[in-house]
Design a protein around this nucleic acid. Sequence first.
DNA 1: AGCTCATATTAGTGTACACTAACGTTGTGT
DNA 2: ACACAACGTTAGTGTACACTAATATGAGCT
Lengths: 241, 241
Amino acid sequence: MKSDISRSLILPASTQQPVLSRSVEDYLKAIFRLSNQGGFATTSDIAALLALSSPSVSGMVKRLSEMGLIEHVPYRGVQLTSQGRRAALRMIRRHRVLELYLTRNLGYDWDTVHNEAERLEHAVSDELIERMAAAMGDPHYDPHGDPIPTATGDIEETELVSLAEAQVGDALELRQVGTQDPARLRYFAEQGLVPGVRVVITDRQPFNGPTTVLLNASGTARIVGQELAQLLSCRLAGREA
Amino acid sequence: MKSDISRSLILPASTQQPVLSRSVEDYLKAIFRLSNQGGFATTSDIAALLALSSPSVSGMVKRLSEMGLIEHVPYRGVQLTSQGRRAALRMIRRHRVLELYLTRNLGYDWDTVHNEAERLEHAVSDELIERMAAAMGDPHYDPHGDPIPTATGDIEETELVSLAEAQVGDALELRQVGTQDPARLRYFAEQGLVPGVRVVITDRQPFNGPTTVLLNASGTARIVGQELAQLLSCRLAGREA
DNA sequence: AGCTCATATTAGTGTACACTAACGTTGTGT
DNA sequence: ACACAACGTTAGTGTACACTAATATGAGCT
């Protein structure tokens, strides 16, 4: 009953003795997403992303920095240490491998697979993840097109373009909103233009005119002026012929 | 990207609003195993099975009985209510479906699959379990030969034979030790004759003589006298031609 | 029946992690 | 330069769940 594959699996070096709690893992993932370009993740950004109160985040930030997983500059924000980054990438690998496996082998579609992966990523062993990855031939992208970090913690850096630079016909995934201005942020949120959202550019008026995008999820259109379009960093997910 | 199978899946009725914690789920499973024949599970049995202190168990017992999952007779023990039994069977279904799936599809063997399933059973959704079960053709037994409860919470009752009744050549899985006597229990534990262990009967001396069994795990032999053999209830797992 | 010992329960504590309310800090606009 | 809104941190609390130490209970032996 011993499988032949089981002997040949190379598991990631056991670099993390202290098992991290579910909460800690979620915080690290959130911080990774928010500070993607070497910037700081702020308390309230983290709180918003995880749907927690800011004091809760402040408390956890203290714990995380005592654990050596983040650097905290009071009143400024937080950055992952290399240890924290490793742990975050490990979670992202788990999440993306799971999403792909569930989509390919168990009939999930990409709407629903996220929540399942979100819970499983905290429970699976490294061994199971590596078995799943091996069973799929060590894939490099998840069902959403996002790169899957390697077991050793490397991730393909995707370069981002602003919505203003992209061309009509481009399929984009919104990744970062380049402003801290609450009014603008609030406006973006109202428009559904938040990180993670996928759009297609359907029109661009000349002379620095507005860009029209179609939200993939709802199928509704949004018209974004030049100034705001420059603030939206996107990953190019596809380009119409 | 929508799978056709996804529409036709019948999910178990959402009978459990209050999501149970990992700990609660573990307690319920333990109590189910210990009170299998309608008996009581005692505080210290539960503590031993879950490797917790008795006060911890006492505390949880109070919570569980407030939640309506168990009946507690102080100083006697604990029994599942029908609600608790349903929740326990749900966990057992999850565990066994997971074990089978991991064994069949991801190269796990039955030594190692238990721990993986033990953690996953708390994290997977009902939907994922049903997808796994469906992908395997709704199997009835897990890799250890144990019956898998149905999604509606029914489980095949396996009838047990005492080690004294079984015949030479029988392959058995030890299920219950029919005594509370600490000295005997301690002796059984020393001999490795504890629930879950699998043995094969290699010899029986006549005139109510001792039974010789081979422990599958270690390959070592044990000689069990008639009196003690009567206390060991086993599931017949196979009979030599 | 009474004593004793194994077992169960209660008391008190600690940790992780959430919350609200109260208090500091900082950057922006006049 | 200063006031104030927006944001961050500290204080204090609550819940879940573990622990050890202390106490209560009940079953078996004399």
